[in-house]
Amino acid sequence: MRKKFIYFLLNEAGIGLILAALCIGFSIFVPNFASLHNVTNIFTQISINTVIAVGMTFVILLGGIDLSVGSVLSLCTIVAGLFMTKEGVPLPVAISGAIVLSLLAGMVCGLFNGWVSETWKIHAFVVTLGMLNIARGVALQVSGSRTIFSFPKAFNEVGTLTFGGVPLIFIVAVTLVLIGQFVLNKTVFGRLIYAIGNNEEAVRLSGHNTKRYKVSAYVICGAMVGIAAILYMLRLNIASPILGVGFELSAIAAVVIGGTSMAGGKGSLIGTFIGAGIMGVLNNGLLLIGLSDFIRQIVTGGIIVVAVVLDTYRVKFSHMLLK
């Protein structure tokens, strides 16, 4: 009975156990870590990375990659920011228009990534690397390399809204994780994403237009970046052509820590969410301990590697238990 429970825990909770261990550890040794206030902060801090990582998970499940998310995020904020600060646009139009434009900008970039790499069979690494530069360049050009600010007051205030300590932007992020998880597990689309990630040729020969699904994954990733851009603007009230540098690495790290295979076909969004959580908790907890910048960087890197290594043992150990 007890063995079975541990087996269940090891198999189903997965890398979440490591997150739980980190949280318990920090709660014991770091004052304030478990305070409502600090938890709210962590929620806010992981939201943007979580949303980008949701999109990234779709792409990585197909065995692809999207290096352009940081630049595209910046471009989306510029497009949305310019529209929102336009003179003479009524408030509701300005805000909803900005959201739609941000989504569209992200999806267009995603469509480009997916379509080019699928049509000419170029590895997404190269195409999205190109897009990383294109999007950054367009953002700088369009904005004249200036930071855009002074958004409508109503918009800025929404950014700090919380419900019983849970920030609005975190609710958005969790909702997207849940929707994504539903799509992956319960829909034909999700089934085919996994199947293509495992064996594209077998899926094609079973009568599916695999190209369409692969391009769709990049468009979804772009849409997520568009949403993340709005969350960024809500949180920091600026739009800038230089933000988002290195965001792709954080997102990829969250996905991979969450157990998604870089080769595709295996993984889940819950895992990705936990991966983003691990990174956020580490960043917060280690700072609260009072470690210096460089030591913090070393420890964060070390813990990430150890977490993933431990995870490989988890599966083995759980099978041993059952025998």
């Binding site: 034909v188 085919l192 199947a195 495992n198 077998a202």
Partner: peptide, 24 residues
């Protein structure tokens, strides 16, 4: 193995792969 089956998916996912409209 390389063209007929999705090896790392379940039996049932493989069976319905060519006609998912029937189970959706």
């Amino acid at each position: 193995k390389n063209q007929g089956l999705v090896l790392d998916m379940s039996l049932s996912a493989n069976i319905t792969l060519a006609d998912l409209s029937r189970v959706s």
